[in-house]
Design a binder for these strands. Structure first.
Lengths: 384, 384
DNA sequence: TCCGTTATTG
DNA sequence: CAATAACGGA
């Protein structure tokens, strides 16, 4: 038996709007931890993974794991019948063949109830790509949308290149070629966060080599780069790279940046679980407990994003700052069509995270408070 | 000779926008009382009746009745040439074959003049359905629009059911079933207004029977339910039904709720023709002269609507309150396609009134100050 | 109120 | 398959 109450139907509406063109049918896997969905797009080029964590619900109960097979288009229609601020309750009995959605107007007297027919969907085995990456970029989701949309006017694919220069998005088209370079706020750091909410140290990647792995410096000073560590430091520290640039080496494993598989930790970072203060204080925390146990394993967890949003109190519009972390030079080419599609999720949250390693699928992660939506996209073969 | 000057062209523009998809050609019947139009939709399933009352015009003169046959599409085009706030004057000579429309910019120096070719249209005999109903619902026109639009995503038809629970709109579709329940403000009253601006008494319909006719109680207390009677009372009186519920019986004729055929009375109710006070005071009036001469015959006159808007001074957002009046349980099924079309008129006025009786066409009435647009739609046969 | 997207018609 | 109109969203 499932009963999940969302304070605002809008989250669900946005999520389904985001995936409805990618996926036609999918299983919503409900369990004690929350609800997840994983599906390949119809052409099996992209993979979407959605998670709604249990504590993101106003009320959540799921006695035993149950997959709810839904037609995404139908669910989208049903969700269109909800107003954004309606309280939305999902219910499904064990073995039920319908999912019941109830919308209650905040102010009272309208109650709508919808029964969506469920279907059996083969739980296709989805290989979630590797979870550690050579590079991580965090930027405004709106800016990401703009970049891929702009470039999609010129060509079909985009080469994303992370170097000490910053991140470059480049597309070649018949009529014109174009590229966008994002400099990143402060020095380019190698790692920004630990997957579990630990604080990682960073080194700046300014001394990027043209080939992979090299230049990993572990000065935590550079940590200023990380979202939490501190915007404030960034300014002061920019280009504070030690002499170590160029001769760094990190364990492949440890230095890799990886997304947090668990959406829950975010809470900690985000809502100052630490109890040491509000989110902004966290910045302090980062500094205090800075020496990282390990210097890599960055996770794109919601925490990261969240942490950032809050931690970035300091200077200016944090939402606009670009954070670049890189262990080694990365250059990959992707289909813009998919990236444009992914960027629809930007209405869920202000920041998006990109994780990349050469020859490995790109991970585009939108972590919102109550969960995340992540997209994996295989690079085009002939990438430079 | 006709000369009719409207202070704002927008009214006419909206009216024609509303009917242009339903009707291709129609006669504008001009007489001393104003201008009316009645037409069946092309498939003869729905009927539209528009009235612009004489005193809704800034200036009105019509020496003798004259039908002006126009192509609605053409008139719509001509009206698109008017700005919303232009002063719009319609002129037609006796026996003329053109209708002249002049638009004067409020502030001055632009005067546009258009001559629309007229045509002879057979005055088809339109049977306006019965004018008394078992149930009346008044709600936000925007909400009505939303409900029918939402449900139209799921299925082709909607079952509208009025019971003591409230009004339920339900639609079954291939992928999902859905329903919206509106609770109504305060207790469900049987009758709310007399057609002529008389004060009717009401009883609440809480003790509704499953079959028609029954439960008519004449306690004026319940009158609080009516729009004029008073929102204020509603809160206090909710469920104040006397013991009489359940054993009422009303004359079929007298208890029926019917739309006001005359657009003018509204003025009386609305603008305190009685001169005993302003609209709000009217509430008082209702109570003072409560013992109804007759207890039914409710009319959907504009007065009703208007009265409500004003009478509903009390509590909250009157525009959102749902008013339900019912003599007996009603359940009918209608084509959503038409209802969606009707709901285009919601840009004319904030409230819409629905009148229903079993096995009889639904009346959807938008009464704006200067007249009304009403739609009649036959129920689908197999309705429960 | 204007722009973009979607659906319908030719 | 393309163009036009309608509907929905920003």
């Amino acid at each position: 038996m499932l009963e999940a109450k969302l304070a605002e139907a809008s989250v669900l509406k946005k999520l389904l709007d985001a995936i409805k063109e990618l996926v036609t049918d999918a299983n919503f896997e409900c369990s004690e931890e929350g609800i997840t969905l994983q599906a390949m797009d119809n052409s099996h080029v992209a993979l979407v993974a959605v998670k709604l964590v249990q504590n993101g619900f106003k009320k959540y109960r799921c006695d035993r794991p149950m997959p709810l097979g839904v037609n995404v288009g139908s669910l989208t229609k049903v969700l269109k019948c909800a107003k954004d601020d309606d309280i939305c309750t999902l219910r499904a009995a064990d073995e039920a063949d319908v999912l019941n959605l109830v919308y209650e107007a905040k102010n009272s007297d309208r109650i709508s109830s919808y029964d969506l027919k469920l279907m059996d969907i083969d739980a296709e085995t989805l290989g979630i790509p590797k979870t550690s990456y050579e590079a991580r970029i965090v930027l405004s989701s709106a800016e990401f949308t703009r970049i891929v949309r702009d470039l999609s006017l010129l060509g079909d694919s985009v080469r994303i290149e992370v170097s000490k220069e910053g991140v470059r998005f480049a597309s070649d088209g018949e009529a014109a070629n174009g590229n966008v370079l994002l400099k990143g706020r402060g020095p380019i750091g190698k790692v920004d966060r630990g997957p579990q909410g630990d604080d990682e140290d960073e080194e700046d990647g300014d001394g990027v080599k043209k080939e992979k792995k090299h230049e990993d410096d572990d000065d935590e000073d550079e940590a200023g780069e990380e979202e939490e560590g501190g915007k404030k430091k960034d300014k002061a520290k920019v280009k504070k790279e030690k002499s170590d640039d160029g001769d760094v080496e990190m364990d492949e494993d440890e230095d890799e940046i990886q997304p947090d598989e668990d959406g829950e930790e975010e809470k900690e970072d985000e809502e100052d679980e630490d109890g040491d203060g509000d989110g902004k204080k966290r910045k302090k925390k980062s500094k205090s407990s800075p020496k990282p146990a390990k210097k890599a394993k960055t996770v794109p967890s919601s925490k990261s994003k969240k942490g950032k949003a809050k931690a970035d109190d300091g200077d200016d519009d944090d939402d606009e700052a670009v954070i670049i972390q890189m262990n080694s030079h990365v250059s990959l080419t992707f289909s813009l069509k998919y990236l444009v599609n992914f960027s629809k999720s930007s209405n869920l949250v202000k920041r998006v995270e990109l994780y990349m390693s050469n020859d490995v699928p790109l991970l585009v992660s939108y972590d919102f408070g109550q969960g995340y939506i992540r997209y994996y996209l295989a690079p085009k073969i002939g990438d430079d």
